[in-house]
Design a protein around this nucleic acid. Structure first.
Lengths: 186, 186
DNA sequence: GTCTATACGGCGATAGAC
DNA sequence: GTCTATCGCCGTATAGAC
């Protein structure tokens, strides 16, 4: 793997744990086994490095969601949405997802605009994949057509936020899904 | 109001927006109209000030939840749980709640232990209030007794996390409640 | 309790040798 | 590309006058 990619990977972990202000260029360099001066040979400044992290996170978010929602083995909306939510709940413990959660939900004020613009494409793409899946399910009778597609999507996204928040709270993921599905099924 | 309380109130707002590392003693002092040296006359150091914020937030969390869950005007579990969730969703925009969310869900690693121990009492108390309400509702036939109290509580807490995450996302709070209630009602 | 002044360290960033 | 050395700034925290 190229040095620039290694830098991004380690930076994502450190930013996820310690935030933007809490992560120094020196600590990132140390983690990689060289000095902070060398870091500046690869990234012009701290913000450029951080933007590199945002872009990688955005790409992975799209890839992850697309892989599940377009999986040919998953035919029913039930299975797609269950798998997506389940995986969201499982992988919060991975650093890249706590990076996303930290900076998407609790951005430091001065970084809010950069973060939103760099993650915008990913959130739009993922939202569309979810919306389309739900729309199909309402139309083909898998979900109750007395509910609007917007209502269901909104509710599902709230669950996604909920299960993404804290690792330790959701050993009991299946109860969350069970009650959601009782609420939307035809 | 006493100076020490004013300091805590302003600190909560600044910590909520900028995090622990991102908030300097000087910026807190400036907000209050004096210098950082004066701040040290009231709080021994930054950590002591931060712990004061955590304690106030914990007290308010308990008071807020208790007020709704023990409100004599709210008889049904439906009304209590709806009101609690609705208020959670409405007040995320208030600084004290983004303080709670920021530091409870995304603590900087070195503060994790302090934060958990200072907020522990509040989360236990609030969880018990919710659990008891749901238990009563299952027992008196307001909720489906084919579901366990744990399942419903778990699911409800996931919704609370979800609606607490981001202000702008939930203009459409009622759809979230609607689908949850369809999932649990008797 | 408030101020000015200051100590001391860590930060982002750069210069210049190898 | 990596290093050591250094700059200038801002952070926490303290000393001491009023």
């Amino acid at each position: 793997m190229k040095t620039k990619e290694k830098i991004i990977d380690e930076s994502i972990k450190l930013f996820a744990d310690n935030g933007f202000e809490g992560t120094s260029m020196a600590s990132i360099a140390k983690q990689l086994g060289f000095t902070k001066a060398s870091l500046y040979a690869h990234y012009e400044n701290k913000m450029a490095l951080f933007e590199g992290c945002l872009d990688k996170i955005a790409d992975e978010q799209i890839e992850f969601t697309t892989q599940i929602m377009k999986d040919p083995k998953l035919n029913k909306a039930h299975d797609k949405l269950y798998n997506l939510l389940k995986n969201c709940s499982l992988i919060v413990s991975e650093k890249k997802y706590s990076f996303f959660n930290r900076f998407y939900y609790m951005p430091p004020i001065e970084l809010k605009d950069v973060i939103e613009s760099r993650l915008e494409k990913a959130t739009i793409t993922c939202n569309e994949l979810i919306f389309t899946t739900i729309k199909d399910a309402v139309n083909n009778g898998e979900m109750d057509n007395q509910l609007s597609v917007e209502e269901i999507t909104n509710s599902y996204k709230c669950l996604m936020n909920g299960v993404s928040c804290r690792v330790d709270t959701y050993q009991n993921f299946d109860s969350i899904w069970k009650i959601f599905w009782r609420g939307v099924k035809a």
